[in-house]
Every structure is written in C-alpha cells, then in structure tokens.
C-alpha cells in the first residue's frame, strides 16, 4: 500500500493573471494520496482556474505546482506525463461526438499508453460496467442523456488509470434528476481510494466524501476545514454568507 500521508499534489505560492486581472493570489495547497477535497465558492472566484492549472490547461505565472514528484514547467515531456496521470472531468462532458462511446474510451489508451486495441477495449468495457452503462458502448455521445454522458466522461478518464481525478463542476450542467447517478459514481470512486479534487456546490456530496472543504473567493482560499466544522461552524464571514445563500 502506498503511503497515504505523502502529498501527491503540492501547490506553492501559485499566482496567475489574465492580463491585468489577478485570478489566483498566493494559493498554497497540499493534497495527500487518497485524499478528497471539495472546493466551493462564488463564480469567478478562480476555483476552476486553480484545478485547470494542475493539469496545465491554464499556465501559471508564479509559484510551483508539483504533481507526483514532477514539477509543471514549460517542458512538454513533463506536461504530457502529468496529463496522463491526472484525469479530468468537465462541466460540459466534452465527449468526442464523432466517435462511439467505446472509441471515446480507447482513444487515450491506444494513442498515449500504446495499449493493443483489444486490451484497451476490454479495459474500456470494465469501466463502462463500473459506471453502469456498458450496453451503450456502440452508441454515439449524441444519443445519450446528460447524466449518461458525464458517466462516460468519468469512465474515459479512468481508462488512463490516473492517480488523481479533477472534477470541474461535474453536475452543474445536468438536469436535477440526473445529478444523483453521477454523484453515486463519484462516491463509489472515492470509496475505492481515488485521490479527488472536486469543484462543486453539491453540499451533500461534500459532507459524505470530502476530508477537507475549501471556500475560494477573489482568487484566494479563505477558509478550509473538515466538512462538519465547515458547514456547522463556519469561521469566515464570507463563508457564512456563501452558505446562507446556497442552503436557503
């Protein structure tokens, strides 16, 4: 068993600007192996930008990001290695519409991991079973509901056997009745010991799964605590206001 106390992601003094706009201000974050973190906060607070920096979909200007011992620099080799080890699930699923579900899942393993096609398809079917959608393998993304598409997107990331999974508001583009099927898959994934960073406002999910919950506002992490204290006894004024707004 790997040492669960050793940090897999280290973010030190991270700063990012969009032109003159200071999006991320001195962010410090350490994520241990198998840890689950939920980040919430108002829109425009920089929470999506933060996790998009971790697999270099966004470039940072100052500070350090180290993933599994590899530092993110301009070195393309490092970036590619980190991307294969960090899976990402997007708000709008971003499945490839011109490929079948099965081909969506095998694209990475075949072209990045250089797995034989047959083996890649077996792995893909294994993960499709896991997200309970195996019977849709030969359909196209356009034929699936939003919840099904998001579960396929999760399976697509899992096929790369990532060490960390990033979720960027995975349920906020879904119809209310499809949220649960996606959250169930994420809960199951967390029970299997996946390291997860989730940007989400699903408070129920945060309470059951997360070890730490954070509130971001204006490019800073304002408060971080275990979920019980975070929800029952928020310290920061901004957190109290935020929770009062979303919990009605």
């Amino acid at each position: 068993m790997t040492d669960t106390t050793d940090p897999i992601i280290q973010v030190k003094n991270l700063n990012k600007w969009y032109g003159d706009f200071h999006v991320l201000k001195n962010i410090n974050l350490e994520v241990k192996r198998q840890e689950k973190i939920v980040i919430c906060g108002p829109s425009g607070s920089g929470k999506s930008t933060l996790i998009r920096c971790i697999n270099r979909l966004e470039e940072h200007q100052k500070g350090k990001i180290i993933v599994d011992g590899i530092e993110l620099t301009n070195n393309l080799k490092n970036i590619e290695t980190i991307r294969t080890e960090v899976g990402m699930v997007f708000q709008h699923f971003n499945l490839f519409p011109h490929l079948t579900i099965l081909d969506n899942l095998t694209l990475g393993p075949i072209w990045v991991r250089k797995t034989p096609k047959k083996q890649a398809e077996e792995t893909a079917m294994f993960y499709l079973e896991k997200v309970k959608i195996a019977e849709q393998a030969n359909k196209f993304p356009g034929q699936l509901s939003g919840g099904q598409q998001q579960r396929v997107a999760i399976a697509r990331s899992l096929c790369m056997k990532p060490k960390v999974m990033l979720f960027d508001e995975p349920t906020s583009a879904l119809d209310p009745e499809m949220v649960k099927e996606v959250l169930d898959v994420m809960v199951q994934l967390s029970e299997e010991g996946m390291t997860m960073i989730v940007v989400s406002h699903e408070m129920g999910f945060a309470k059951t799964v997360a070890q730490r919950v954070m509130l971001m506002d204006d490019g800073m992490i304002l408060e971080e605590n275990n979920p019980i204290d975070f929800f029952e006894n928020p310290q920061h004024e901004r957190t109290q206001f935020f929770l009062s707004q979303i919990l009605h």
Binding site: L57, R83, T84, G87, M88, F90, L107, G108, R156, S157
Partner: peptide, 10 residues
Amino acid sequence: TEAAMSIGLK
C-alpha cells in the same frame, strides 16, 4: 481540445 489534452494526447 481540452478534453483531448487532458487524456495526454500529443
């Protein structure tokens, strides 16, 4: 492009 990048495609 982002989805393709996030699974590590060149």
